[in-house]
Amino acid sequence: MLLLVGSQIYYTQKLVDLNEKNKSLLRLGQDFLQLRRHEKDFLLRLDLKYTDKFTHQAKRFLTQLTAVQALDKQSQQNQQIFDELFNSFPLYQQQFVSLVETRIAMGLDENRGYQGGFRQAAHALEAKLSEAEFLNMYQLLLQIRRAEKDFLLRKDLKYVNKERALYSTLIQRIEAQSPFQYSQLMPLLSKYQHEFMQLVDAYRYVGLNHNTGLQGNFRDQAHLVEQNFVNLDHHLQQQVTAAQRRVEITSVMIMLSTTATLIVLLVRSFLTLQRAFNNFGMFFYRCKREYKHMDEKSVGFSEFKYLATIANEMIDSRRKIEQELRAAQDEITRLRLGM
């Protein structure tokens, strides 16, 4: 019974530890989901406050990850997954920081970054063309702006090629103007084109959709981190199942061993008790005819040994009394014969 209680205490504590690891892993997964939320909030709203939240959450995540790893030093397989997490998560964080920096350079709204630069140049160029009443060139610039907005809306490079063709045509028309008009218009158009192409290159680097470029890379990296969480949870569930199975097997084995031991003890006690009663029965049977001591060693229980000792003393006392009575009778007989 002590073994059974001890094993239950040991395995219960082990299951409690595994349950704590499972809770810690769930909290860690929630922290990572919160990171993904801040990441998507930034991509959707382009607000830098979400990058600050992301940075704060990332520090908390790494602290929690270190604590969870310290709780699970026994499992070598789990330690390998933790090592992969410590390698993959900083890369995911670094790629997100690069994405944020690139998005800042592109412009978080239409008035900043590359967008703000080519937009200001386009408005200035539109004003110059409208002022000079260059209607053909103004119409061509509107077509360029249309191709630009189509690209920004659909992220399709065919609109960039279309914009370049229109840009070349507009250059030719500006070059055909007077040197004064050329000096007024060409710097604005060049600035517009330079800023727009920088924005296009930035979009290529970031990714024209969520599966390409930097967006695709850090998205794959995030999925890798999530897969490591899935692997950790799978291994932890296997450990819990194995621990529960060991508890069941150990409990059954201890119960069977205890039952067998109790059966053996009961059988032996029954046989000893039966032998003791047989000895007492034989003792009282012999007491009718002869005075023989009971063998105390043949009695199994200490209480019966005490009874056997008292019975032997009783036999000795009766034998002594009978001897004294016999001696007294002999003395009386001699006295009668002497008279």
Rank of each mutant, 00 (worst) to 15 (best):
R268A: 09
G6R: 08
T259I: 09
V240N: 03
N231K: 15
D330M: 07
D316P: 11
L129T: 09
R145G: 05
E163R: 10
A122N: 06
E126V: 04
Q239R: 13
E303P: 04
L185N: 04
I171C: 06
Q69D: 05
L99W: 02
L2R: 06
L152Y: 10
Q172C: 07
N228R: 11
I332M: 12
Q143R: 01
N87Y: 03
L170W: 02
D31E: 07
L307V: 09
L48T: 08
S178L: 01
Y11I: 09
D316R: 15
N231I: 13
A242E: 15
N279F: 07
R326H: 14
Q215C: 12
R112G: 01
Q115R: 07
L271D: 02
D17M: 13
L62Q: 13
A243C: 08
R318C: 10
R103T: 13
A242Q: 14
M282E: 15
N209Y: 07
N87L: 02
D17I: 09
Q34L: 11
I310F: 11
H123M: 03
Y11N: 07
L157W: 04
Q329E: 13
Q184Y: 01
D52I: 02
Y285H: 15
L62E: 13
L125A: 00
Q74C: 05
E148R: 11
A70Y: 04
L166K: 05
N111Y: 00
T333F: 10
V252T: 04
Q77G: 13
V230R: 15
S24W: 00
N87P: 01
K49M: 10
Q77W: 08
R60G: 11
R334C: 00
H38Q: 15
K23F: 07
R268G: 05
Q64E: 12
L141H: 06
E303S: 12
E290C: 06
K305G: 14
K191V: 06
A132Q: 13
F42C: 10
A308T: 10
M106Q: 15
V200D: 12
S168E: 14
I104P: 04
Y192N: 03
I263Q: 06
T333K: 11
A243W: 02
Y291R: 15
E226D: 01
G107N: 04
K158W: 00
T212E: 15
E226T: 00
D330Y: 06
Y11G: 00
G116R: 00
F89A: 01
I9V: 08
E163N: 05
F229R: 12
L152P: 07
L224E: 07
G6D: 06
Y182R: 09
Y291S: 15
I9Y: 05
Q74K: 14
A327L: 10
T261Q: 02
I315G: 01
L33W: 02
N111E: 02
V206E: 03
G207F: 04
E296H: 03
Q221N: 10
D156Q: 12
L65H: 01
Q177T: 11
Y291P: 13
R112M: 00
E248S: 07
E248Y: 08
Y92R: 00
A147D: 14
L335Y: 07
L142T: 15
L3H: 08
R164M: 14
L256A: 07
E20L: 06
L185G: 03
L337Y: 07
D295M: 08
V225E: 00
S75K: 07
K73A: 10
A122F: 02
L65Q: 03
L28R: 02
Q115L: 03
A67C: 02
R27Y: 09
D72R: 01
N217T: 09
Q8F: 06
R60D: 12
L170R: 05
